[in-house]
């Protein structure tokens, strides 16, 4: 640990990684809580995997067609929002087809990404890092984009907290009350999409569902209201990302995978402890 702390003081890339972890944790706490209570983690999974298509397409356009301004994170945002809207609209208009469309978006997004990678000359280390995560490769430009996404996600989630609570608790009742329940549901999926992009920078798109849901699920063992769950989940996520980073540094392990293993262990420990406590 002391080796890690000394390195943080010394290396800018580690400082940037810690800032990235903090930025991701902010959105993770707020949106992760909504995802867990609304039980839409599979939708979040499909959105996450579709992100590869957006990043692959952005990289292809940047390298092959000279759109050098097109950052892979921009492609990720577009793909994630498009996937969220497609799943959301099908879910609202033809509920019985929801699982089919989730599976389709999940696989088609990945396939598009793989094809774009194949069409882009050279072995793209950056793209592979988005797939499996490498928080140590985060650039200052990434941090600004992440900060912007954070601002949007947290501002919308806080300003519309009552409407989102009503829709998450009982969507049909909210609709009867005259709330634009469908619009708020799509908005929630949009926030989820942006958060998935943020978190994929830390742990990669394959592992992102775990970081989105496990901190909130762990926090729900300690709090019985949505607001406190969000705050606690954000703090847990911060502890997990920073802790995973520290644990992975010495033995030179992939940080994203270590963060997720840590998240899984904490969740099992807390949930198991809570289960035992109720029975003793």
């Amino acid at each position: 640990m002391s080796e890690f702390l000394a390195a943080v003081g010394q290396y800018g890339f580690l400082q940037q990684a810690l800032v990235a972890g903090a930025l991701a944790s902010l959105a993770c706490g707020v949106v992760g809580a909504y995802v867990v209570v609304k039980r839409i983690s599979y939708i979040a999974g499909a959105i996450a995997h579709s992100v590869l298509g957006g990043m692959g397409a952005a990289r292809y356009l940047a390298v092959v067609h000279g759109w050098s301004w097109l950052h892979p994170l921009m492609g990720a945002v577009v793909a994630a929002l498009a996937a969220a809207m497609v799943i959301g609209l099908v879910s609202l208009k033809a509920r019985q087809r929801e699982d089919t469309i989730i599976g389709a978006v999940w696989a088609v997004g990945m396939a598009l990404g793989v094809v774009c990678i194949a069409l882009t000359p050279g072995y793209d280390v950056q793209l592979m890092s988005y797939l499996f995560g490498n928080i140590l490769l985060v650039t200052p430009q990434d941090l600004w984009l992440m900060g912007g996404l954070d601002l949007v996600v947290v501002a919308v989630a806080v300003l519309l907290n009552r409407q989102l609570l009503a829709v998450c608790f009982d969507q049909e009742f909210a609709r009867l009350r005259g709330l634009s329940a469908d619009m708020y549901y799509l908005l929630l999926l949009g926030l989820t999409a942006l958060t998935v992009v943020l978190l994929s920078t830390v742990v990669g798109i394959i592992l992102v569902i775990a970081l989105l849901t496990l901190p909130a699920a762990t926090a729900s063992n300690f709090a019985r209201r949505l607001g406190p769950i969000m705050v606690l989940a954000g703090l847990i996520s911060l502890g997990l990302t920073w802790g995973g980073l520290a644990l992975s540094y010495g033995p030179d392990l992939p940080a994203g995978a270590v963060i997720i293993l840590l998240a899984g262990a904490v969740y099992l420990l807390v949930t198991g402890g809570s289960w035992l406590k109720k029975r003793l």
């Binding site: 209570v37 039980r39 300003l159 519309l160 907290n161 009552r162 409407q163 609570l165 009503a166 998450c168 608790f169 009982d170 969507q171 049909e172 009742f173 909210a174 009350r177 005259g178 709330l179 634009s180 729900s220 709090a223 019985r224 209201r225 949505l226 769950i229």
Partner: peptide
Amino acid sequence: AEVDPSFPITALEVVLTGALGPGAGLG
């Protein structure tokens, strides 16, 4: 009622959602 009994919400908050209609504003 199509509500999840394990949803983290107080009784007062449940009732508050009943008063929320169009034009509820922000905050």
